[in-house]
Design a protein around this nucleic acid. Structure first.
Lengths: 199, 199
DNA sequence: GTCTATAGCCGGATAGAC
DNA sequence: GTCTATCCGGCTATAGAC
């Protein structure tokens, strides 16, 4: 076992991830992380040289876990339309099951420097992004598949991100938070435009 | 003039807004705000009882400014499809001109409590949201116009939010940041699905 | 209404015993 | 590898002169 996977390290990172997800980097103190992981603040410095490093490694951990899940969601068969439908549902379920990951992603988009965003793009999203782009290119040859892939992601993620404010906007219903409802809506929109959102 | 609009108050809030947008509530100190507005930190407490209140009033200010702009963007004429096209372009331009507002909105979705989100929904977005919902209902009678309105917002906002990471994802081009390009893509997608994204 | 000075607390980080 | 004790700087907020 390398030092990267010692039990305490992993334990500390697992405790830190939900804290960073909910309160952000500057909203979490080393003492908070110590309390959550059940050890003294000074002991954290035996495993990580400083808070920055602990944070970056917590992100790496959270995102590595997710990259695996993404790859599984990509093994689809059937027609291009069926694969799109399945893929949207898989990703919507995957993301809605993990609000911490969604929050960390949001926070990195807001606060991440170039280095971290590049890592995130290449190590977490690239494979899934390429698959979605390929599917878009298959469905609509000659389209700007980069933009289409971003649009697919945006539709799934924003319905989840706006969950806390939607109850206060007209027409918001509880079932709008169900992954199956979101996925159905998104698929209809992608395949047929807003006409595809008819009941 | 009520105390709510004294020159110093407005000056302090105007200095605080970009700081909160870029670094978030806990990433900005009263000393930072003092430095940015050119007065001593202690003097801030003459205008605001504490940091929380200063923050909430800065949000109120930033969002009130924007609600006006939204209303202007709603005065469209022509067929339903034309109004949708115009509205998407107006909102995309409005948001892309104001990255601070986009960031504050994102941060509030992550960190805002019920009270703040309710205010945001009712005082800033409600009017625009109702107009977009109405348009969706006109274009596709019987659709879930709440979800459609969220989807329209998501498409516009996520293309802007992901701007920092898209250079690292395959196929990302500089022109993907132009509001006109985004609006065109979004409109095509809404009216015809991904088929509408063909070149 | 703005200043200087400072109280009192909490933050990141280190020293050194065990 | 975890602990206790501590340094020191930055934080929010207050006191009081002008």
């Amino acid at each position: 076992m390398s030092e990267k996977t010692s039990a305490s390290r992993v334990h500390i990172l697992a405790a830190a991830i939900p804290l960073f997800a909910r309160r952000g980097y500057s909203g979490v103190s080393m003492r908070d992380i110590a309390r959550a992981s059940g050890i003294q603040a000074a002991s954290l410095y035996h495993h990580f040289p400083d808070k920055q490093t602990l944070y970056v490694e917590a992100m790496a951990q959270a995102f590595a876990d997710k990259a695996e899940g993404f790859d599984k969601a990509l093994t689809q068969t059937g027609s291009a339309e069926e694969r799109l439908t399945d893929l949207v549902l898989s990703f919507t379920r995957l993301m809605s099951k993990d609000p911490d990951f969604c929050a960390l992603l949001q926070r990195e988009l807001l606060d991440g420097d170039e280095t971290r965003l590049k890592q995130l793009a290449e190590q977490v999203f690239k494979q899934a992004f390429v698959a979605i782009r390929g599917l878009a290119g298959e469905l609509v040859p000659g389209c700007d598949s980069h933009m289409v892939a971003i649009s697919i992601a945006s539709l799934i993620l924003y319905h989840l991100e706006t969950a806390p404010i939607r109850p206060f906007l007209p027409g918001g219903k509880v079932h709008h938070n169900k992954p199956e409802v979101i996925a159905r809506h998104v698929t209809g929109l992608l395949l047929h435009g807003i006409k595809g959102c008819a009941k």
